[in-house]
Design a protein around this nucleic acid. Sequence first.
DNA 1: TTTCGAACGTA
DNA 2: CGTACGTTCGAAAG
Length: 905
Amino acid sequence: MSSSDQNLPAAPGLTDGPLLLIDGHAMAFRAFFALPPDGFTDGRGQSTNAVYGFARMLINVVAAEQPAYVAVAFDMSGGTFRDRIYDQYKGGRDETPAQLVGQFPMIQSMLNAMGVTWLEVPDFEADDIIATLATRTAAEGGEALIVTSDRDAIQLVSERITLLQPVKGVTEMRRMDPAAVEEKYQVAPERYCDLAALVGESADNLPGVPGVGPKTAAKWLNQYGDLTNLLAHAEEITGKAGQSLRDHIADVERNRRMNAAVLDLELPADPAVYALGRGDRAALMGVFDDLAFGPTIRKDVPEVFLADGEEGAEPAAAEELGEIISAQGEQLARLLAGEFAQGAALAIDGRWELGSGEATALALSAEGALAVVDLQTLDPEGESALASWLADAAVPKTAHDVKLAIHQLRGRGLEVAGWRTDLGIAEFLCRPDQRPTDLAGLLMRHLSEDLQVASAASQQELSLDSGDAAQEELARAADAVRRLEPLLRADLEKHAAASLHDDLELPLAMILADMEEAGIEVDDAQLAELDEEREGQQRAVAESAYAHIGGDRINLGSPKQLQEVLYERLGLPKGRRTKTGYSTDAETLADLFEKTGHGFLADLLAHRDVTKMRQIIETLRRFIADDGRIHTTFHQTIAATGRLSSNSPNLQNIPMRTEEGRRIRGAFHASGSEQVLLTADYSQIEMRIMAHLSEDEGLIEAFRSGEDLHNYVASRVFDVDPEDVGPAMRSKTKAVSYGLAYGLSPFGLARQLRISQSEASALRDGYFERFGGVRDYLRESVEAARATGYTETILGRRRYLPDLRSDNRQRRENAERVALNSPIQGSAADIMKLAMLRVESGLRGAGLRSRILLQVHDELVLEVPGDELEQVRGIVVDGMGAAHELSVPLSVGVGVGRTWLEAGH
DNA sequence: TTTCGAACGTA
DNA sequence: CGTACGTTCGAAAG
C-alpha cells in the first residue's frame, strides 16, 4: 500500500455516486501508444505523452460519468503470484518502452495533486485491486465504473458494475454492461473467465484449446452451464474440437486459475479515501508547469477534483432543459398529444439485425420536452398512442439515420411516416467528401464553441429519475438531433440541396430500407458446390507453382514473398514500382509471362483467380441469413459523386466479366417457383449524359441514329464508313470515350491500349476534331468548377473541389480529373435514383407485389411474380426511361430469368 | 489488436 | 499518370 492507511473503519456503501476505478498501467500504455512520444516533452527531453493522455482520459471520464469516488490501480514491479503458477505468464510481451517507464511516477504525482487516490499491492495486479473494490462496492449497494483495456475485467461486469473499454485512443469508450457482454461474447459476464480459459489469452501468453475459438467455447458453455460441468462431461463431446479439449484439460484448468480475479485484498474501506474534491489547484498547476502542459488541459480540469471549492463560471447561454421524463401509459399519450404534437427529434437504442434486432428504447425531443420510452416494458395504452403518433404522416420526425431508425422500429413492430430530415443525408449533401459523421461529430462541426460548452453543462444537469445511464445518453442524443436540425436545414438551403434531400434522398431511404429488408435469395448448396469444385483446382495449381520454384512452399498470397521469389531468386526483370517495392499485380505478371514464359507466372495467375473466386463465394455464404437470403446494406452517404454503395456483403461487385465468375450470379435466384428475377439496365448512360451536357451535335446524332455507339463514333473519328470499322478501331474509340469521362491523360490511354504516348495523343486529337463540343464542354466545366469551387450534377448535387486551385500540380491535376468525372457519374446516379422512385411508386400505385431487390449503379434487379411480369416490365422501362429528360433518349435493356445470371444481359 | 497497402471484383 | 466503391490478406504499425 502506498498512499493510504490500512486500518480505517468499515464504512457505509458508496451511495452518492459511482466509484470510478482505473487500471493505471493499461491506460498509461494506451495513452503512450495513442500519442506521439516526441510531440509531448517536458523541455528536458523526458516524454510526457502518456501523462498527457492519461490526464485527458481521466478528465473526460470524470466529466462524463460524474463519479463521486475515484481510485487508480497500478501493477507493481517484481512479479505476482500468477508468475509462480505459470512461469510463462505474460511471456513474449514486449518490454515496457524506456520512454514510458519514467512516466509512471509523473502520473502518480499528478494524481496526488488532483487528490485522486492511487493504489498498488505487492504480488498482485492492478486487476485484483479493481476487482476487490468493484465487487465490494456492488455488494454494499453502490455502483462502480471500471476503465481498462484489460479483458480480465469483463468477468466483473454486473448490474452494478459497468466496464468502459477504450476503443480508439484514450477518450473514446465502449460501455459494457451485462447485455453488451452477452451480445459480444455470447456468454454472461460471470462465464467470461470460463470462456477465456478455453480460448486462451494471447496478451498473457496463455494458450487455449487449439481449434476452439470464442464461438465453440460459448456454445459449449451455454450447453453445459459452466466450465466445471463442461470438463466433467468432456468425454461426451464429439469431433475434433472435443478431442482437442480432452488433450488440453490441464491447460484449461491452469488458465482458469490464472484468470480468476482476486476479490479479497485488504484495501481501505472508508469512502472518504476515494472521494473526489481533495485536489490542490496550486499543486496541480505546479505539476502541469513541470510537465510543460499547455493552457487547454488546465482549463479543462473539472472543479470537482479541487478542494478550494471555487465555483466555476456559469455558462451564459445554457438552455434550460428541465428533466428527462421516462414516459409510459397515460403520461406518454398526453405528451404525444401535447408537447410532441408538432413533431420531434428521435433517437433509438437497440441493436438491429434483420429478423432478430429491434428498438429497445426511444427518446423524443421537442422544444420544452424530453422523454424516453422503454419499449420493452411499454403498456398497451402507451403502445397504441405511440404507434399512431409514429404512423401519423402529419407529425414531422427527424433522426440522424432515418433508414436505420425504420429498421429498428420495424423490428419492434412500429411503422413511421412523416420523416422530415435525415441529419446524416443533409450533412452528406453539404459536404460529400467528408467522412460520414456521428452525432458527436455533427455537434462539433455545427455548434459554436460557446454553445458546446453550454450544451455540455446543461446536459450534465439533465437526469432521469431512474438514473438509467443508457437512457440518459439516449435522451441527450435526441436532444442533440433536435438542436442540429435547424442548423442542417439552413445548411441545405445554403448548398442548394434542400430539394435533393426532401424529394430525392429521403424518399429513397424508405425504398432502400425495403430493399435491404427484402434481400435476395441465394442457393447455398450451389455456392458450396462451386467452392468445392475450385478447392482441388486451387491445390493443384499451387502445387504446380511450387514445383516451378524448386518446391519452396511460400505464401502465394504475400506480395512480399512473391517479390523475393520473382525478382531475387528467379531474377526476372523488375516492372512497375509500388510504394513498398515492385508490383506483382496481374498486369505485371502477364507481361512478365509474355516475356519469359516462366511456368510459375501462369500458375500464380491461375492461383490468384481461383483464390479470389473462392473468397467471394465464401464471403457470400457467410452472409446468407436464416431466411435463405442475403440482405446487403446500401449506403447513401459514402460515395462523393452520389452513387450508392453496398456492403456486408457488397453486392455491387459480384463477378460478371469472366465465365467462371458469372456462375456465381447463377446462385442468386427468385424465390418460389412462380417468381422470376427481372433486371433492367441503362445502356451507355454516362456517354448519353456526356452528349447531353456537352450538347455536341455529333454525339447527340450518334445516339439518335440508333446505331452502335462506338461503331458510329469510330467511323467519324477514323473517317470511314460504319461497316468498315474494324474491331481495333472500335475498341480504341471506346477507350477514348470512356477515358474522357474519367479525366484521361495520353499516358494513361497509352498504357491501357498498349500504344505509344504520341499515338494516344493523336487518337485523342482526332476524336476532339470530330467531337469539338465534347472538348469544349470538358474544358469549360473544369474552369467553371475552378471559379465556383464546386461541380454540379443535373439535379444540382454539388461536389466541392478546393484543390482545383492548389499550387501543388499533383493535387490540382487530380482534382481536375475528379471535376471531369463527377458531373457525369453523379448525374447518372441522380437519374437512377429518380428512376427508383418512379418504379417504386409505379409498383405501389398498381398494387403489385413485385419489389426492387438490388441496385448496381446502372442496373436494377427486381423479384416479380410471374403473372405481374408484363405489367412490371412496362413500369420499369417507362420509369427508368422517363426518369429525366435529356437531349438524347435514355435506353433501357431488360432481361428476365430464374437467376440473376439468366436475367442478365 | 488495430491500421495500412496491395490486389482485385463491379459500374 | 482516368472515376467511384468494398473486401480480403499479409505486414507493419500500435
